[in-house]
Design a binder for these strands. Structure first.
Lengths: 180, 180
DNA sequence: GTCTATAACTTGATAGAC
DNA sequence: GTCTATCAAGTTATAGAC
């Protein structure tokens, strides 16, 4: 599974063949089918495992008895942590979900939509409480989510900077920019 | 070419077949080869056309006799403009370049590396002049570049907000976060 | 569980008539 | 330039021996 994520990450899902995947785990392609049902099963697992991590994160943020800024900082931290712990998996989640077939595709999009809806709600609440600047919540959310979508591609920065500091620096940039 | 970008954008380069591409332009697959030499030729064109736009942008920023913050704001604006004018093309540039074969792959990566080197130089200069906060230039640059990597996926926001305002809002968030 | 062999199909690209 | 027909290679997945 981890090897699959690495290949999907570097080559993309469609461009990765079962033969290649078999080779990196030291088997013939046909032998893989004793362990998995299909190639797509791997993609499904990777996409939904990450979707769950993100959903769990936002649920935890919602429960917290804290300011909106603290909630957002928590979410940023948590997502940076996920990206650094399993970067290849995050790539698949970010970029390769589109190759899911139905009904998995619709299900995945539904989960993602729900996540964004809840994130938007937190931001909107922050604007109402005048914790955040009065900019379109949608613009703020997309900028927030995107701004950390490079961390998983730079594992070498983690070693230089350390996760705690990296997370703190990014949070500082983004939070300063949206605080009122 | 525009139709190719759209398909590569929605399905990905590998998952897009010549037969599909032919269908959307109302031809048979074989007829495409009277117009192009190969499937990869399309990918090459899309990747390098966008690479040139970005390189031209940074060259212009370097020439400007302005503060570092103004240069960065110019770059953000310019990249948002590119993303809104031709979103599907930007997706290919961002995500599908990895399917380039040699020597195009190396050439593309070289151009991108050069772009980032020059962007880093501007940021480093800004930190030295105490225009920007003292955070790792690499973290600042990656956060900057990533933070707008969603604009091309939301053309509907353009109609609501207008490019000028959208660009101004995003710049405000990011620039406030890195200004000293 | 792993292998070899292969089925069933899709891929990018070409040949040659019109 | 566009078509039909086709090729050679590569794809996921299965069958059946060990």
């Amino acid at each position: 599974m981890k090897k699959a994520a690495e290949l999907f990450h570097t080559k993309g899902y469609t461009a990765t063949t079962m033969r290649e995947l078999a080779q990196v785990v030291g088997l013939e392609a046909s032998s893989l089918y004793s362990h998995i049902k299909s190639k797509e099963e791997l993609l499904i697992h990777l996409c939904f495992t990450n979707a769950k991590k993100f959903s769990d994160g936002i649920e935890e943020a919602e429960k917290q008895d804290s300011s909106v800024c603290e909630k957002i900082e928590f979410l940023l931290n948590q997502q940076i942590k996920i990206a650094l712990e399993d970067g290849t998996s995050v790539t698949v989640f970010d970029d390769e979900w589109k190759h899911l077939s139905e009904p998995y595709l619709s299900s995945f999009l539904q989960i993602r939509k729900d996540y964004q809806r809840r994130f938007l709600k937190i931001i909107t609440h922050g604007i109402e409480k005048k914790e955040l600047i009065d900019i379109s919540p949608s613009i703020i959310m997309n900028t927030l989510i995107s701004s950390i979508r490079w961390v998983h591609l730079k594992p070498e920065l983690l070693k230089q900077t350390g996760m705690q500091d990296l997370s703190k620096d990014i949070s500082q940039i983004i939070l300063t920019g949206i605080k009122k």
